[in-house]
Design a protein around this nucleic acid. Structure first.
Lengths: 202, 202, 202, 202
DNA sequence: GATGAATGAGCCTTCATTCAT
DNA sequence: TATGAATGAAGGCTCATTCAT
């Protein structure tokens, strides 16, 4: 998509990216963007409605990962318990591969989301991901008859917090500008680490 | 200290707290604060230099935890390896007790730091804590001759990220306004979880 | 005329009406109108020249009443004094009937003129009506040898102001959205009231 | 009061007056005012809160007439019927003298109110005056046992409209920039005219 | 030490209008 | 003829900060 954008739009997008990345949402100025892009401020409004609309356009690609998670978990949830157990590792591996692929395909969008967004934008994003994960995890624990689940040693609240911590840590690869390769190694270690954490409950 | 603050200063501090907590650093307005406190905007400048100075004053108590960590780890590092091994659990338990004590002694300051600060303020704070922890941990691993340490399975970078994730999660008790009791239980679970994660490396 | 307007023009007119009635001339936005009508802003310019042109088009029907007054007074002025005296009441009755008929035939146009127009638009309209009335009235007073006219007790200036007040009051039926029936009763009372006022001069 | 205002305030007020009188409330620009007054736009905000606050300051003196009416009618209403009958003409004469005095004492304020204000400002002003008048009039008609009042030939609605027309006409002396003398004569004629109109009901 | 006042820079946004296509 | 796009101008307003008093 991006490669088909040309002319003013392209300039506006590039300059917005630069401005937002440098200053963050709040301190970014549409005036600066417009003048850097060689257009009038109004042009931005013609194209993107307003400041928020422009920013949302820039981070829109990050929805692909959420879409992917939703779709994947839906399929996964539709499997039998046995299949779920068998497929868990595959699905998981594929998921994180996909994560890396998507992130490095639209790196600026993720960078913006993680490091330069406004209010609760990133928190909401994390919350969506975490909730999806937790919902399916809780269901899975229930279905497999997890002892920890049934004696309430592992409640949803704690699950949620640890999950949030995990996904926060996941996005450190963006926050700290790792290369794709660094990210791959890092994520593997992270998964191992958390798996050991979770192991007691499964 | 707080109990010696009176008159205008007290009012300014109270109203600043309210404004920053409600709107966050960027959207807080010194004029609102001044008018709520019944002083002129200039008075704030007389007392606190500027907006940032005022905010820093408000979050200053949070340095107590960092001071505590520094002092404690310094003492710990001065022990022999054998002592360190023996004392690890005690020191650790005491540390988290102290954390809870300090946080709930100056709750607004921590809340401000965690949820309402500006730019990298909280990240820098976390970074300080994490670095302290990681430095001593790496030294400890080296001293005890950790296999994982020597075959570079556990490098400083990863250690840092996981540690960051842990301390981030730790401060969720502030972010989510847990009561002191809730925080106590929550932190215990969290420590167990992460200990299992780390166990492979020790 | 209206029944021959179709397609885009019709939509533009309807939406303009709505926008102008809701927000008044100044605060109405051509963009809102265009987007509500499903056309581009430019289309409005193609059809109606500009904002003022569009508005003028919408209130154009209100000229019918002025045309009627002009024609009627011309005929009336062409009569002999005796005829004028005889016909005064008839002409007058017919005139106000016609007023009501025209207003309720093109109600939105009058409403726009009275309540939503810009600058001196309505004042100019009133001024035209008043001037017509005053011109003929002064001529009539002169022709019938009115004492008040000749001793300058009743000068044109005063006549003008009272006439303005009368026609202003007349249009209250539009300003206050009276039904046709309410307007009929209201106007009768108003005429009686002002006739008593004038009576001293005739 | 005005003669004690000096420095920037005076300049701002003078220039605001000029701008509002020339362009009306909506089209007046605070930027123009500020630059004409040789101050920054912000200064206006320091002094007058905002555009509306500035305008309200300028027209504030017009409240004197309403205050006068309220006070006068209150006293009048407290009299016995006989006294009211006896005093009616005096009170009335004094009232209109006072009107002229107040208007020409703060002419710009009234001019602004009548010819340059925003939305329903002047209508609301007229409405206040009219309501005061109508309230006392209706009470008076009731007290003196007016036939027209009791057989409902003269209802409050009609009374209100005619009264509005009268006070509208009254302010024509401001709208048309009459001199104080012209206004005096004009108002006398107007009062006579309307008295004849009312006479049928008393 | 406190303040009222002033400020310049900057904000986002909206508008009526034009013009190449 | 219709329009999408672009624009310059302008709008009201808020801000952190300074400084003479």
């Amino acid at each position: 998509m991006a490669n088909r954008i040309e002319g003013y739009d392209k300039k506006i997008i590039d300059c917005s990216l630069k401005e937002f990345l440098e200053k963050g949402y709040n301190d970014a100025s549409l005036r600066n963007i417009a003048s850097a892009a060689g257009v009038s401020t109004s042009t931005i409004y013609t194209r993107f409605k307003d400041k928020e609309g422009l920013f949302n356009y820039l981070i829109a690609p990050t929805n692909k990962f959420i879409d992917y998670m939703e779709k994947t978990l839906l399929n996964y949830g539709a499997m039998s318990i046995e299949e779920q157990k068998d497929e868990y590792d595959n699905i998981s591996d594929e998921g994180f591969d996909k994560f890396i692929e998507l992130v490095y395909e639209d790196y600026p969008a993720y960078k913006l989301l993680v490091s330069c967004s406004h209010g609760d934008t990133f928190n909401n994003y994390l919350e969506k991901i975490t909730s999806l994960d937790v919902d399916y995890t809780m269901k899975f624990l229930k279905d497999i008859g997890s002892k920890a689940f049934y004696n309430e040693e592992l409640d949803e609240g704690f699950c949620h917090v640890v999950s949030t911590a995990f996904y926060s840590a996941l996005f450190h690869c963006v926050e700290h500008d790792m290369t794709k390769e660094e990210a791959g190694k890092y994520i593997n270690k992270l998964r191992n680490f958390y798996q050991r954490g979770w192991s007691a409950y499964f």
